[in-house]
Computed example of a mutant assay.
Amino acid sequence: MTIDVQQYLVRQEPYYQPQGREVQLYEAAYRNRLPVMVKGPTGCGKSRFIEYMAWKLDRPLITVACNEDMTASDLVGRYLLEADGTRWIDGPLTTAARIGAICYLDEVVEARQDTTVVIHPLTDHRRTLPLDKKGELIVAHPDFQLVISYNPGYQSLMKDLKQSTKQRFAAFDFDYPDADLETAILAREAGIAAELAGRLVKVGLAARNLKGHGLDEGISTRLLVYAAKLINDGVDAADACRMALVRPITDDADIRDTLDNAIDAIFG
């Protein structure tokens, strides 16, 4: 079966503002076909960065949103029973290895550890993928690259990558942009004035300062963009902040009150 590579290409340039030298460093990793791991909090731009790099390198991108119910078959493929017999269907990892795509496993620690083991042969000198059920050994396309991401803030003994997996990757640490860069991102993404974007960033910083003091995770850049879009659509700024920034991240009454007061002070 012929695979339509064009469907996996990123057609339009994703908006991405570098925080450092990550673009050049990723290009070096790709030139050497090194597997890459990106780490950072929710909504800080990890997925946008990978999408941007796929566009910049003009490589197809296949993204897999990992979850605790994902099996190895979900990644590599399975036989399907049809009226006239069985037919093998490649999984996303197998497809990427065949066509030379960047395969992005988003939040990989959400998958079971016995599932992530299947990536090991693709992340060392072998660059192969055994399809045991099919009796086939795939040698990865020369352009294939594996990328994984996860949020270290959610790590636990039950949900972490094994050292045998971690030490197969070059790694990037991501964090929320600094205030000036995040202000520029909000202004560009939502089409709002820089002054308003700056106020939203202050709300975000107030919440991030509570991480570990009642909040598991701070307000992401993604949520700040949501709030900005609501305000740009005519929603009252304080209402937009409560709706997009506070209510999604906590149900704790004290934390809500603290953040609501911060919003009133910033937008009052």
Score class of each variant (00 low, 15 high):
P177I: 03
A190D: 11
T123D: 09
K159N: 05
Y104D: 15
D173Q: 03
V139M: 05
K159A: 11
A97G: 10
A194C: 06
D132T: 03
L137R: 14
A184K: 07
F174S: 06
V203A: 01
L122T: 00
V118L: 08
V109G: 00
L131A: 06
A96C: 12
A193C: 02
N209H: 12
E107F: 09
G204C: 09
A97S: 11
I138Q: 10
Y154M: 04
V118F: 01
P130S: 00
P130M: 00
L186E: 03
G191Y: 05
H125K: 06
E136H: 07
V139L: 11
A207H: 02
G100Y: 03
L186T: 04
A194Q: 15
A197W: 02
N209I: 11
L129R: 13
L146M: 08
G214E: 07
E136P: 10
A193G: 10
H141I: 01
A193V: 08
H125P: 04
A197K: 03
K159G: 02
D173C: 02
T115R: 00
T116H: 06
P142A: 02
D106P: 10
G198H: 05
Q163K: 07
D132L: 10
L186S: 01
G212T: 12
L210T: 02
I219D: 12
I119Y: 06
R98Q: 11
A111K: 12
G214K: 09
Q113W: 05
A179T: 04
A171H: 06
Y154R: 07
L210N: 09
A206M: 07
A206R: 13
Q163H: 08
G198Y: 04
E110K: 12
L186M: 07
D178E: 06
E195I: 01
R188T: 15
H120V: 08
A140R: 11
T116S: 13
A96G: 15
A179V: 06
Q155R: 04
E182Y: 10
A190E: 10
A170P: 02
G198A: 09
R188A: 15
